[in-house]
Design a protein around this nucleic acid. Structure first.
Length: 596
RNA sequence: GCUGCUGUAGCUCAGUGGUAGAGCACUUCCUUGGUAAGGAAGAGGUCAUGGGUUCAAGUCCCAUCAGCAGCUCCA
């Protein structure tokens, strides 16, 4: 199994056009097949994408997965009967007329989207009944008789031009490669993605659940995953304490007026839960932790001598997410952010940002993630504050990144309503990207809450706030982590670290003795001393992805040894128990990723 | 929220208007086993929920809830 998607870096011979060209042409071929089977179809867009291609269709009848076989067959037929793909250039008027004659209303609209002065081209293929052409900028293959391999994958809805105010079309996704092997490899990758799905592993490893009785988007952490989470939280606090962060705790519910001052009511209310009335006053469940931390800051006068203040909270927030978007642990309605707010002077800002960037890097490497950073600037609407402070904040992020040699990609308009941010994307073991860490510079909330500190010259100055989360939310991060590791948590955070398995019941005492010694050192060991069969216990430990199985029978008992079976292998090594203890002490101490 | 699909035992799924099923998991008994499924028996279901059609509904229709593939949106 390849560690990254085979689609990302295809191997191909030099004479062949890029994979994206093949896939784009496959989208055309698919569209022509759909037209043969459903003559009234109107077409949307049909590009190549990262791992394949899609095409959007407007059809009166719904397509289902069952239609894919017929469409595939038709595609093969069209390609075999006549392979040539031709390109012709049309004037804007000719293109409009042709599409209008064909009743292709979406495509007519698409012509209007082509900038003045740009060439307008049609790509066509097929003979007679198969004849089909499409407004398209290309490029395409010149001939479908080239050897290629494709597979149609699934059907889904998609808005015309990606806008939810537009009609919903039907989208078919597919993928294609030059060789059978590459296609096979990609299908195996998709299979691996499925196997590692945190919802599936969550069930088989007894990690978490969600419940219709509790409502969508609320996660229940079972003891196994609770253990993983505690381990992560422990490192988190350890590293944050080292970096001068102090813990704070704030309530989940506050008076609504607090969120009026912060601007959440005005800019974030569609994400917030409805008010509840207490003593005739409206209260709200918090969607963010910042107003709470601000109240602590404001509780007394602050001196420049105290700054920077770095306050961390694993703060649970509740946000209304639309019903269709909730997804396992990755997109939920209640989650715990590893939040912190830094209150600092303008002089300190760049260093503070740089410090957070370094911490992001350190924590993400602990889990083996590679990160990419993006600079997210002011959104087009629903923001607070004047442009000058936005510019200042944006410049501060950029210069902090420069100071530590961090390259920032651009995310235009992706900022929070109160300030710009650096967002990180992490790449997991399967090559997929996730957004977790975020660093946000905020001049606006200090203004709104009238935060001050006394400067060295005795004047009252405005502090700057940095909002930051590194894991993002524990739910999303741990969900990603399950998939990243495929359930094979490193020893230091694995729910059960060692499974002890006696070969016969008479060896159970020996196992219990070893179990006691492991537990005395706070290892999470599971002594499987029930009367069940040894093979069954091995199978359970495999299913639970326990890093080490220690199997002990007569020989081990007599010698004070254990037969170690490491996760993922069937080989055994017999070593003195003390050696094993030394090994796990070291792995835990190093928070090692592997079991060596 | 939108489009399409799905909901039957803890899990995976069969059941095409007429007596609710299988495999795995679970429990008990037998088996004392050297590295991924020993044998036998048993228990387990208001067929998501509520309404409707029908002599008769797990099966057909409507609504609600939850889930799946996406879109849009996001930590």
């Amino acid at each position: 199994m390849s560690e990254s998607s085979p689609g990302a870096q295809p191997t191909q011979s030099v004479e062949r056009p890029p994979l994206s060209t093949l896939r784009h042409s496959l989208a055309h071929l698919m569209a022509s097949a759909v037209q043969k089977l459903h003559p009234g179809v109107r077409f949307g867009f049909g590009p190549s994408i990262e791992h394949g291609f899609y095409y959007d269709f407007d059809l009166p009848e719904p397509l289902t997965d069952k239609d894919l076989a017929a469409i595939t067959k038709e595609m093969r037929g069209i390609a075999n009967r006549s392979g040539a793909i031709e390109c012709e250039e049309l004037t804007r008027e000719e293109a409009q007329k042709r599409l209008s004659d064909q009743g292709q209303t979406y495509k007519e609209e698409a012509v209007g989207l082509i900038p003045e002065g740009e060439k307008i081209t049609f790509y066509s293929h097929g003979e007679g009944e198969d004849r089909w052409g499409d407004l398209c900028e290309g490029p395409h293959l010149t001939d479908f008789r080239e050897s290629f391999h494709f597979k149609l994958l699934n059907v889904a809805g998609a808005y015309w031009r990606g806008d939810e105010r537009n009609p919903m079309m039907q989208r078919i996704y597919g993928t294609g490669f030059w060789t059978k092997e590459e296609l096979k490899e990609h299908m195996a990758w998709l299979e691996e993605v499925k196997k590692r799905d945190h919802r599936r592993l969550g069930a088989s490893m007894d990690l978490f659940s969600t419940h219709a009785d509790a409502g969508a988007g609320f996660v229940f952490w079972h003891p196994n995953l609770g253990t993983v989470r505690r381990c992560i939280e422990d490192v988190w606090w350890e590293l944050h304490a080292r970096d001068g962060y102090e813990p704070v705790y704030t309530p989940h519910v506050s008076r609504e007026s607090l969120f009026a001052v912060s601007g959440h009511l005005e800019n974030y209310s569609e994400m917030m839960y409805a008010p509840m009335e207490l003593d005739d006053l409206p209260y709200r469940v918090k969607p963010m932790n910042c107003p709470g931390h601000i109240l602590i800051y404001k509780n007394r006068g602050r001196s420049y001598r105290e700054l920077p203040l770095r306050w961390g909270e694993l703060g649970t927030v509740y946000r209304y997410e639309r019903s269709g978007v909730v997804h396992g642990m990755l997109r939920v309605r209640g989650f715990t952010q590893d939040d912190a707010h830094i209150f600092c002077t303008p002089d300190q800002l760049a260093d503070e940002i740089a410090g957070v960037c370094r911490l992001v890097d350190e924590i993400m490497s602990l889990f083996g993630f590679e990160c990419t950073a993006y600079l997210a600037t002011r959104p087009a609407e629903k923001t607070i504050g004047d442009q000058a402070s936005w510019d200042q904040a944006t410049a501060a992020l950029q210069s902090a990144a420069d100071s530590i040699g961090l390259k920032l990609e651009s995310d235009e308009g992706g900022g929070a309503f109160y300030g710009p941010k650096i967002d990180y994307k992490i790449k997991d073991a399967l090559g997929r990207e996730w957004q977790n860490s975020t660093i946000q510079v905020d001049f606006n909330l200090p203004e709104r809450f009238d935060l001050t500190y006394t400067a060295a010259d005795g004047t009252q100055q405005r502090p700057i706030m940095v909002h930051r989360a590194i894991l993002g939310s524990l739910e999303r991060f741990v969900g990603v982590l399950i998939e990243h590791y495929g359930g094979k948590f490193p020893l230091w955070c694995a729910p059960t670290q060692v499974a002890l398995i006696p070969i016969r019941e008479e060896h159970a005492d020996y196992c219990r003795e070893l179990d006691a010694r492991l537990k005395a050192e706070l290892f999470r060991s599971d002594c499987k001393d029930d009367p069940a069969h040894m093979n069954k216990k091995i199978k359970q430990a495999q299913r639970d992805q326990v890093p080490f199985m220690l199997i002990a029978g007569e020989r081990e008992q007599a010698d004070g040894t254990v037969a170690i079976r490491r996760r993922g292998t069937r080989e055994q090594e017999v070593v003195p128990f003390d050696d094993f203890l030394a090994l796990v002490r070291r792995l835990r101490g190093e928070r090692a990723a592997g079991l060596e």
